[in-house]
């Protein structure tokens, strides 16, 4: 229930508003997590907020989070420096179906900060390269200055049997890459529906378009598509009620769900 103090080892600036914090895990805390899980990070006196673990599950002793400063708590979180302390509760929630995906092709579709919770699954697939088939990563950001993990991305795209594509909604003068929403990247990929597991994270509206695209145009059954949901969270333990989405508590039933379970609810206005 009470957060455990963790020391910040490094803060890396990813973009103008997004930073990656690496925390040292105290011995007694363990630090194990499954890709897709999140923690509640406590900033002294400011608040506690849900942040996905974006680090490499194969590297023990540290917890990595990528935070986009959008308000009060995230704003003060990214102002912290190496040596500062944050409180950590967790990890909480469901994980990406990395076991079910064994032996299959993996399709990753991310929008904006949504790449953060998916990065840990990308690490997992690359750490266990032989256990998985083709890895496809489709990533859309608002503009070139919002692109996360540029170094990682270049290295992913050079891996064997890996296809990593980026697009931006709006380019700038120097941008030579693709322009358009993330669904436009689907014209470059061919999926084998029987052996593909898709994992999606991004704004809800984007995920709905992507789900429709891969279900209709690529014949992927809804049960093979997984996505993460985001709702207000105060406790992460099923007590505060804030994260409810129809019958589900996003904090303990999710945040990762199959599209099969989310589909009947996603279209309901203001649910």
């Amino acid at each position: 229930m009470a957060p455990a103090p963790h020391r910040i080892l490094r803060v890396k600036r990813e973009t103008h508003d997004t930073f990656t914090l690496t925390l040292e895990v105290p011995e007694e805390a363990g630090g194990e997590f499954a890709p897709g899980q999140f923690s509640m990070l406590y900033v002294f006196g400011v608040g506690e907020l849900p942040i996905s673990i974006s680090g490499d599950p194969g590297v023990p002793g540290q917890l990595v989070y990528t935070v986009r400063a959008v308000g009060k708590a995230t704003g003060s979180l990214v102002k912290l420096r190496a040596g500062d302390w944050v409180g950590v509760r967790g990890p909480f929630g469901s994980a990406w179906p990395v076991e079910a995906a064994r032996g299959k092709d993996v399709l990753i579709v991310a929008g904006g900060i949504g790449l953060a919770p998916l990065r840990s699954v990308i690490y997992h697939v690359l750490n266990n390269r032989d256990a998985y088939g083709r890895l496809t990563i489709l990533y859309g950001a608002r503009s070139p200055k919002d692109l996360l993990y540029r170094v990682d991305f270049r290295s992913w795209s050079r891996q064997m049997d890996t296809h990593a594509l980026t697009t931006v909604d709006h380019g700038d003068l120097r941008w030579r890459g693709r322009v358009g929403v993330v669904t436009t990247l689907f014209r470059y990929v061919r999926l084998v529906p029987e052996r593909t597991i898709a994992m999606l994270c991004g704004p809800e509206i984007m995920m709905r378009y992507v789900c429709a695209e891969i279900e209709k145009n690529h014949q992927l059954p809804a049960s093979q598509i997984h996505l993460t949901m985001e709702r207000n969270m105060k406790c992460a333990a099923g007590f505060c009620g804030h994260c409810q989405f129809g019958p589900y508590f996003i904090c303990k039933d999710g945040p990762v769900f199959s599209y099969e379970r989310m589909k009947p609810l996603l279209g309901i206005y203001e649910l």
Partner: peptide, 10 residues
Amino acid sequence: CFCTNVEDVS
């Protein structure tokens, strides 16, 4: 009804 809010102060 069990819902709660959490507030941090310093």
